[in-house]
Structures are given as structure tokens and as C-alpha cells.
Nucleic acid binder design. Structure first.
Lengths: 109, 109
DNA sequence: CTAATCAATTAGTCAATACTAATGTTTCTG
DNA sequence: CAGAAACATTAGTATTGACTAATTGATTAG
């Protein structure tokens, strides 16, 4: 079995549709508590807590407890391993995807 | 259950370490036949054929039969869903990603 | 203090999947 | 033609993983 690289955890975390939807909601909506994430999903609260645990271990989300609520937010740095992995294949898609280059230029501005 | 988007197949395909290693080898080494892919991996030939099937369904590799050999190559276009997904969170990283400038420089060089 | 609320955790179930071993199919070779 | 070689496919197994239901722990409200 191969070693568990950071990109491994990120890919596996984002491969599941339910979990990816949670991440997407957090990326859009700023801080959201577990109850609201549960409402937006089709699964139980327990399942959401489990997914949040995976996302946290992958470095994709962070938590902020407040009273009996726990507010989660997406952490952009968690996507770094994925971008690094893609950038490693830069030469591979360089000429076929002007998209990412434009995107990165735009972000850089 | 959520619909099966293209990014789903790509993420799931690349989430497995063995399968990702196959893709990486193909991305580096141009065309490679199944025997050589099997040698480079820690699993049996049958397992590699199964992984190649998944990668092909995800649009990440293509095959070129030649006699009794089958040469596989990575197909850059298959990464498009992943790049699109990332670009969708443009605004998300824009101001938060510390490493982005460095990453851009690396890719742009 | 007692109820209720929010979230995490546990145990258990079911389906998906990564794998091996064996076989099938095609193609090449002696 | 007979055997070997390359790859795909199948059946079977074991592990992983996504999920629910139920419980627990902590905080707030009445």
C-alpha cells in the first residue's frame, strides 16, 4: 500500500458527493452550524458530523464552537495539495487548458 | 443521493492511490503497456486492468491496441472537470490563498 | 432544577470496492 | 498447428465506507 499523502486525504474527502456538497456550502456560505448543514443535506445529523470529521482531517474545514453550536467554515489552504498535484502536471495540460492560466492570472491581480 | 457529475468520476478515480499512481506514470511516461504498468505497481495484472477501466470511464486515459499489447496514455482533457470545479471557487481563494502567487510563478515558468 | 437543543460518538447494517486467483480471448512465435 | 504471451474478465473474498438509530455530553431555556 502506498503512503498516505496529503493529496490522498483531500481527494478522498472530495470524492464523496455528500461530503463535497458540505464543503461547497461552506465555501459559499461562510460559517454554518451543523444543524443547518444537516438541513441542507439529505442525511442525518450524525452522518454530517462524520463527514465534517473527515473534512477536518483533510484540512478542508475548521470549526468554531460557540455555546452548544459549532460553526464550521471552509479553509482554502486545504485545497493546496490538490493544486500542487495539478501543477505538477502543468506541462501535461499546459497547451490544452488556457483556463487555469487565465484563472490564476486573474487571481494574481 | 446526488447526481453523478463528471467531477465525481474524476475525483473517485484519482482518490485511490494505486489508480492515481497509474495515471501519474502515464502522464509522465507517454505510452505504456499493461505489463509495464503492472510491473511498476504492487498488484496483479488483473487489478491493473480493472483500474485502467475505471480511469478510461472517467476520461483520464485512452488505449491504443497494438498486436497483443495495449498501450495506454493519459488524456489531459480528462482533468477538465477537476479544473472546472476548482475554478468555480475562484472567489473563494482569491484573497485567502497565500501560496497562490508562488504556485502561479511555478506554473508560469 | 428540569426540559430541550446541538453536536459528537457508538454500534450495527448494507453496499461499494480493491484485490487475488483463475479462466477466456486474442495475437504472436517456433 | 501448438504453445506462449498480453490483456480482459469473472467469481469470490475481505475491507472500507456511508449511513441510520440510539446514546452521550454539553449548553441553554423555562
Amino acid at each position: 500500500m502506498l503512503p498516505a499523502l496529503p493529496v490522498d486525504a483531500v481527494m478522498r474527502a472530495l470524492a464523496d458527493p455528500t461530503r463535497r456538497a458540505v464543503f461547497e456550502q461552506l465555501a459559499r456560505g461562510g460559517e454554518v452550524n451543523v444543524a443547518e448543514l444537516t438541513r441542507a443535506s439529505g442525511v442525518t445529523q450524525g452522518a454530517i458530523s462524520q463527514h465534517l470529521k473527515s473534512l477536518k482531517l483533510a484540512g478542508l474545514v475548521a470549526e468554531r464552537p460557540q455555546g452548544r453550536n459549532v460553526f464550521y467554515r471552509a479553509t482554502p489552504d486545504g485545497l493546496a495539495p490538490l493544486l500542487d498535484w495539478l501543477s505538477h502536471y502543468d506541462a501535461f495540460w499546459r497547451d490544452r487548458f488556457a483556463n487555469l492560466r487565465d484563472l490564476l492570472k486573474e487571481i494574481d491581480s
